[in-house]
Amino acid sequence: MAAANIKVSETPLVLYALRRADDALILGHRLSEWCGHAPAMEEDMALANMGLDLLGQARELYSYAAKVEGKDNDEDKFAYLRDVRQYRNLLLLEQPNGDFARTLVRQFFYAAFADLYWRAMMGSSDPTLAAIAAKSEKETAYHLRHSSEWIVRLGDGTEESHRRAQDAIDDLWAYTGEMFAVDDSERGLVDAGIAIDPAALQPRWLKTVTGVVNEATLSLPKSNWMQQGGRSGRHSEHLGHLLSELQSLPRTFPGATW
């Protein structure tokens, strides 16, 4: 017998918290995959550090989702007992680590967004979300600085590092549009002042990203075609493998406490 999926009542606020929690968990998990295998010990430390920040954010957001939902769910049930179609994270964040350049480009695209996003969310009318935002903003400011510095080093480093960084930008670019999208469920929260409209952050995000990419002697793709679907559970093939690993123990030993 394997542990079954939980049911979630995705009211707008629960769904909102789950989406951000899933973002943080999935990216944190990806970063944790590097642990012990990074190109230098200093980077092992840094990637683990950022992974820990994100895991912390995920736990707070899941706990808040559980509280708002008011049922039997908790942080671990949300993380370990939902299937691919119930996960709500951005497609960008589930993309495999690839080489160091790909991991850092993924981190950079997201951190440049998350830093703006959490800073704006500090003004949320929901005090719990505002508090989570204040903590997360401090953390993502470092993630942005760390990844920006690496984008510049890699882009303006050697021919090989330039090529790898450019390939990563070209491949991941189509996943960046989803960060700025809002659906009807979230629109209501934006109107109520609980959430902010990420679309408003897009010009500033692009300015930050363009500045760093230019300094790195790299370039952004011309294509405006953007992949979407993560927020509503239509994921890439990669997420299922990540979850099968992440969830293996609670799925194999239903009901056990760890």
């Binding site: 990074a38 190109p39 510049v152 080093r153 303006d156 480093g157 050697t158 590092s161 790898r164």
Partner: peptide, 11 residues
């Protein structure tokens, strides 16, 4: 990781 360390040195 060699290419990453080389890139950092070159930069």
């Amino acid at each position: 990781g060699a290419w990453v360390r080389e890139a950092a040195m070159a930069y």
